[in-house]
Design a protein around this nucleic acid. Structure first.
Lengths: 219, 219
DNA sequence: GTCTATATGGCGATAGAC
DNA sequence: GTCTATCGCCATATAGAC
């Protein structure tokens, strides 16, 4: 781990590898990314990858687990807090907007990988230790106190995740078709969604009018 | 099917190939699928694939174009009709629900592929000849007549597509975390969304109360 | 720890017999 | 049109020098 190094003092090689691997895997996918690609991105020799992580699979597992361990808690915790409902929604949307802005390829990458290899999930879920039941129960209660009765909260979650993730998952297609491939316009659109998505949810749940957590810009 | 078999008379080999290739490509992705996989699925010899379609790339392009040509029009036409707004929403949701039920891997596959290789899109869009501007203009007008002012209709589209597609894109993950991996419960959930999504949109756009196209079950 | 050289296997693609 | 046999490439992985 800590090698004495007079001539080539970079014990942070491992860090560079992880960083490069994350980037390359997300952009090209597990199969599309070659070890050479990752080595190039990290600026090191290819065989070093095998020295630090025995093979491609192990390297990938490390990256994948790391990414999901970072994403899952954010998701659940946003709903596990004791803030008012619409406040949770707003926090959730903004947290993900920031996360996705920095990792735009993350959703496609994750879902493609899980879809291809669902077994990988089991281990990771254990490793992270999320408890969605708790958050779900809380949601149900809060929705009822908002006057929404008999609605499975998982519909809300699915709606929310869909609305937040779609602009990233379908970006290449959506930007080209609905924005004439205007990147700047699309980025403005992404920014707008931080406001539009919570408002949409709010209106759907509360009926018309402005709910809490909507006081910044124009109506 | 046809037990008639003197030597090997099957000129519908091409059809079998296309069917098999579509299935295998969707399930394993372009890179994950090998020509051998496709040949096996079609029940033919591997070199026959090269006889009918020169190489893997050409075979893939055929499949991909075919799939998108089937999906795009459905999407745009649902909004280009002159039915009332909520009717369009309902039709859109149900059409996609049916399509996705039969091709659950389609969204991940398409978005992954486009994300990896955006260039492929340009040709296909031309080939299909969609005109989203028209549908967008119409949407804006209809929303205003519903009392929704100053809202970019593309937010509605993104919300709708996200809500419809997410349960399929994130199925492996969502079913495991929020449904304890209960497949039957999840399929019930998918069925429910045909009703829940239009209602959610309706409430968001009209405020509270029941809009059109919502008369089947409990309030 | 880092490099060069090399082994191994899989897959796409073609040639050629039938 | 369909098969068998084979070629050549590329990516993973390891051996071994420094």
């Amino acid at each position: 781990m800590q090698p004495e190094k007079l001539e080539n003092l970079e014990p942070d090689t491992e860090r560079k590898i992880l960083e490069a691997a994350g980037k390359v895997f997300m952009q090209k996918g597990r199969l599309g990314a070659s070890m050479q690609d990752i080595a190039d991105e990290a600026g090191i020799n290819r065989t070093l990858l095998h020295y630090y992580f025995r093979n491609k699979e192990k390297l990938f597992d490390t990256i994948f687990t790391k990414l999901l361990s970072q994403v899952f808690p954010t998701m659940v915790e946003a709903f596990a807090s004791d803030r008012p409902f619409m406040e949770k929604i707003r926090i959730f949307v903004e947290t993900y907007a920031d996360l996705l802005k920095e990792n735009p390829y993350l959703p496609v990458f994750v879902f493609q990988e899980i879809s291809l290899n669902p077994d990988r999930l089991a281990g990771i879920i254990k490793h992270v230790g999320v408890d969605p039941d708790l958050a779900l129960k809380g949601l149900t209660k809060e929705m009822e106190s908002l006057g929404v009765h008999g609605m499975d909260p998982r519909h809300i979650i699915a709606n929310l995740l869909g609305m937040v993730l779609f602009p990233y998952i379908g970006r290449a297609l959506f930007q080209k078709i609905a924005f004439q491939d205007d990147t700047e316009a699309y980025e403005k659109f992404l920014e707008d969604r931080k406001e539009q998505v919570p408002r949409f949810v709010n209106m759907a749940l509360q009926g018309s009018g402005q709910g809490p957590g909507q006081s910044r810009k124009h109506p």
